[in-house]
């Protein structure tokens, strides 16, 4: 179960998107650290430095690792979605089992022209499988491909 094997990587802009999302979280963290720094008497930097290190790690390393952990494949009329740095999961949904398809765009995703493709199945577990970080054009193309496969199957 390696991420590398014949999986299509996500759109590179997804790294930037993750970075922006994490930067917002990092800003909140740093703000909290600043308050703590002011409130706690003692050496300067006792809270600041660890917080800064965490923020730097989150901004530099985490987006890359996440990006590389994720991937998808449409081979053999199946949608395969791999994700997770620490907890890995690898989901396969045959096109024939897709009940309906969503292509969603959040405000940040719109800025980077990205989209999230979500397929819904009838299963209780994995009732919906989301694939974020696709370029909007790709997501729409994938939706059409899956939809065409369903229509052909249904006759």
């Amino acid at each position: 179960m390696d991420a590398a094997d014949d999986l299509t990587p996500l759109d590179p802009a997804y790294k930037t998107l993750l970075r922006v999302q994490l930067a917002i979280a990092a800003l909140i963290l740093l703000a909290a650290a600043t308050i703590a720094e002011v409130a706690i008497p003692g050496w300067t930097g006792v809270v600041w430095l660890p917080a800064l290190a965490v923020a730097a790690y989150a901004l530099i390393r985490v987006p890359l690792r996440r990006y590389h952990a994720r991937g998808y494949s449409l081979a053999g009329e199946r949608l395969r979605v791999a994700r997770g740095v620490i907890f890995r999961s690898d989901t396969v949904v045959p096109f024939g089992r897709v009940q309906h398809i969503d292509v969603g765009q959040g405000p940040l995703e719109r800025v980077f022209h990205l989209a999230t493709l979500t397929v819904h199945t009838a299963g209780t577990h994995n009732a919906s499988v989301a694939l974020p970080g696709l370029s909007h054009g790709d997501a729409v193309a994938m939706r059409e491909e899956i939809r065409a496969a369903i229509r052909r199957d249904t006759r």
């Binding site: 179960m1 620490i86 907890f87 890995r88 999961s89 690898d90 989901t91 396969v92 949904v93 045959p94 089992r97 199945t121 009838a122 299963g123 209780t124 577990h125 994995n126 009732a127 499988v129």
Partner: peptide
Amino acid sequence: LQSVELVQHPLARLRGYADVRFGLAGGN
């Protein structure tokens, strides 16, 4: 069955095992 998912937590990856979860309509 509706879907198949392979799940591994860090220990499972280290030791080489995985859970398989199936999408079943109406159950787990």
